Amino acid sequence: MTNWGRMITAMVTPFDENLNVNYESAISLAKKLVEIGNTALVITGTTGEAPTLKAEEKIKLYKKIKENVNIPIIAGVGTNATDETIKNAIEAKEAGVDGLLIVTPYYNKPCQNSLYAHFKEIAEKVDLPIMLYNVPGRTACNMLPETVEKLSKINNIVALKEASGNISQIADIVKRTPEDFKVYSGDDISLLPSMAVGVYGVVSVCSHIVGKEMNNMINFFIEGNVEKAKKIHFKLLDIFRDLFIVSNPVPIKSALNMIDIKVGGVRLPLIDARKKELEIIRDNLKKLDIL
């Protein structure tokens, strides 16, 4: 049975001053994330700027990070073309990753039957554990609970990163799927409320900065100490919100650079945070005594 643990960080991809991938910084960051309690890492997800990475950069990242950390590496390989996603998945498997994160196809807006056929085809062609990724705010495509239920019956589809922000939909998914199918919150701000309806853990962005606190919040909730968990949630509420004031990963990269974890800028079509956004991020870090 696949178990990637409860706290997974969707890791940024560090760049140097010329916006080339900085592999040494990526290794260093991955090690730091392990030290603060991450149980797995997603590499080349949205936060890792997958759309602007070259195929060879992705493969080298998988290999370098896998060689240097002892927790599972989950590769973000999803595209809006089934054949291309299968190709990416096969290459990621050959590079040694432990699992795949596959987003619902974006832009072409498939129906629910199309979504089922897409993921079923990939699962049959690539023998690795798969985490589905539903993020309708980015894809203009919402995978409904009944579709997740059908897909959860396929052996190597083992988890879902659910970023709809819809607590009713999240609860319905948990209700419909087997206990060994893990539903993860894809929104940091929704983690604690989602755990109340059975979400297992989180695929997080904010954990780059407040991973220890998030881990404590998860553990307090599991232990039944809801008040302590709620106290941490409220403490982190502002940073959960403000690390998404512009498109991810612009704010989280800015925050990491501020605390001297050098990850560089972002590739076009994204641009670096502006003065006002930097002030908001800096204020949050100061409030939490991180800066």
Rank of each mutant, 00 (worst) to 15 (best):
W4L: 11
N18S: 09
Y23A: 01
Y23P: 01
Y23D: 02
S25Y: 00
A26K: 02
A26W: 02
A26H: 02
V34S: 06
A40H: 06
I43H: 07
G48K: 08
K54H: 09
K60M: 10
Y62I: 02
Y62T: 01
I74Q: 08
I74M: 07
T79C: 10
N80A: 14
A81F: 12
E84Y: 06
I86P: 05
A89R: 08
I90Y: 07
K93C: 00
K93W: 08
K93L: 01
E94V: 04
V97Y: 05
D98I: 03
V103Q: 10
P105W: 08
Y106W: 13
Y106P: 01
Y106G: 01
Y107V: 12
N113E: 15
Y116M: 00
F119S: 03
F119R: 10
E121M: 10
P129L: 07
M143T: 09
V158Q: 04
E162W: 02
G165N: 07
N166P: 01
N166S: 06
Q169C: 00
V174D: 07
R176V: 03
D180S: 13
Y184T: 13
I189S: 15
P193S: 09
P193Y: 12
P193W: 11
M195R: 09
A196E: 13
G201H: 06
I209G: 03
G224T: 11
V226Y: 13
E227W: 00
H233C: 01
R241M: 11
D242R: 04
I245Y: 06
A255E: 03
L256W: 04
K262H: 13
G264T: 06
V266D: 08
R274E: 15
L278Q: 14
L278T: 09
D283T: 12
K286C: 10
D289W: 05
I290V: 13
